[in-house]
Design a protein around this nucleic acid. Sequence first.
DNA 1: GATGAAAGCTGCTGTCC
DNA 2: GGACAGCAGCTTTCATC
Lengths: 154, 154
Amino acid sequence: MELDSIDWAILAVLQENAALPIQAVGERVGLSTNPCWRRIKRLEEAGVIARRVAVLDPTKVGLPTTVFVAIRTARHDPEWLATFAAGVAAIPEITECHRMAGEVDYLLKLSVRDIAHYDRIYQRLISEVPGLNDVSSTFSMEAMKVSTAVPRPS
Amino acid sequence: MELDSIDWAILAVLQENAALPIQAVGERVGLSTNPCWRRIKRLEEAGVIARRVAVLDPTKVGLPTTVFVAIRTARHDPEWLATFAAGVAAIPEITECHRMAGEVDYLLKLSVRDIAHYDRIYQRLISEVPGLNDVSSTFSMEAMKVSTAVPRPS
DNA sequence: GATGAAAGCTGCTGTCC
DNA sequence: GGACAGCAGCTTTCATC
């Protein structure tokens, strides 16, 4: 689907604040309500807008700590991968899991209350998934920038 | 603010789909429209729900590649940090930046079109911010799990 | 004191120009 | 893309348990 400048202006607004009335979105991009609504509907139907979600304040819900976990493993067979994927999916504190190129095989991002909480998740993961030989975790001291918004590719 | 089981049920729903009418949210958590609406309003006013955002499909907007960049630096003075923070803030392809504990000083997450696109961002960053001695980037081959939702702390 | 029903009103949705 | 009309859903008030 082709996206023009106005589409990107709409996407920029909605990526920041999806609670705005369509009329307010239209004003910010120079469109009246109806054509703005039609564009948004088109973007949703095309799947460009995948979903609308509520973002919580990590501190206010008691999960202020972000941990990144780099995993290396000797196991790469499909059965092991299925076990690993199931374990990752079952632990809600794991918010992201990427299969990586390079030295590290998998990179996880977790949201936890504190180090003790992380340790419980860590113990759970290694007990559910065998063969996690090299697991190195690093804690975020400060989230300088955290955004779900992506720019128009230049 | 205290969050009970029903609040967490509401938050679980809204973290998955914030476009749902309040009545539908209420049905899923066993509440009629009015008390459900009051709880959501309370969660918003308390800042537990920080915002509502549209999440785009990275593939459909031409940014299918996720890159993690680990940075080590010898510079830690406030002036350097201000320059670094400004550079990070100014580059929209950088979606996250964390100041880390341990060996790595900063961890960045980027959304880019391809390796060439990443290289342009990389060049821009090191030209704007001096003293980035050790910059190692790793590409995500597959996003096995990506979520903005966090669980009720156990 | 919190819930559920019911009314008013804002803003979403579709048609026509 | 813009104007207008119909209507669904949000927001408030009031009675109830």
